[in-house]
Design a protein around this nucleic acid. Sequence first.
DNA 1: TTAAAGTTTCAGAAATAATTGAAACTTTAT
DNA 2: ATAAAGTTTCAATTATTTCTGAAACTTTAA
Lengths: 167, 167
Amino acid sequence: MEFIEAKNKYIQTWGALGSQWGINKTMAQIHALLMISTEPMSIEEIMDELQISRGNASMNIRALIDWGIVFKESKSGERKEFFTAEKDLDKLAITIAKERSKREIKPALRILQEVSNIEINNSKNQKQFKEQTEKLYDFVLKTDNIIEKMTQYKENWLSKLIVKIIK
Amino acid sequence: MEFIEAKNKYIQTWGALGSQWGINKTMAQIHALLMISTEPMSIEEIMDELQISRGNASMNIRALIDWGIVFKESKSGERKEFFTAEKDLDKLAITIAKERSKREIKPALRILQEVSNIEINNSKNQKQFKEQTEKLYDFVLKTDNIIEKMTQYKENWLSKLIVKIIK
DNA sequence: TTAAAGTTTCAGAAATAATTGAAACTTTAT
DNA sequence: ATAAAGTTTCAATTATTTCTGAAACTTTAA
């Protein structure tokens, strides 16, 4: 396989995986591209490599910066802005996990708590509802707590986790 | 809050969370509905509760069955088919994790391995490509291994995991 | 101050994904 | 054997998400 072919395959794969997990394709592809770039890239270079429009590139770069996994960089002497990606995968995963917790899990938790706290009569249906939503709340809360704990390790948490699980 | 209102809110929330994580909204909603149902439900009841078409209900129920988190049930005396959901959240999470590993992570791994194994010249770019895709492969593989390990606990793995992480 | 270069925004277009509904198919009971 | 009831399928429609590209805005340097 050619380098170019491998590179394209890698970017496509990462983009597809992104969409399957709720991250938009272009966003994932831009990140993938920056991950394997040795130098910070300009918006033009990104547009060119991925064959996407300026608007699309700009919006998704901004989103990646909001997520905290891509950084602006100013090359001295150049007026243009350049971008680099977080390349440390442990850090990357933690940042994504934290953000998704904040944006998606925490709001869902709030609602689960709210609905599981309703006053019920003693009908079978309402009892079951309360019981299941309480369980769901507990479960999601535990999951979120795990994410929080992971976050504290920072260095090599994945390897540490494996060791802990195995023993 | 009314029971009906709480129920709708719960179903909407679960559906939204589903879409954010790559599971289609209706699929997540049907599962949410079955989770709080005390009795197996027929396709008509599901259509009626969620206000969706027969085709949509049927396709998504079938998908849930394929995933292994909803089961067909035949009530004795009734010809119609009824459906129940896996209500144990530990089992549910494990089943979903296993399926997603099989459907999405494993194929991605194959490609990462493939592209990280290309012959490279000694240009900076190609070296960086190989290095990063190898790291990515290792990382995704480790993640997948964790999922596999989890799977083996079955009972109360989430609680067990928390204990292990904390100490 | 101004105009060229660089950057961002956003309404409309395009692509993708989900849903409908009616037709085809299957099962059951007579 | 047949027709009513139940179930599944899938082409066409609808909804949602993403992307484009041109216009507006900002920065820089002469």
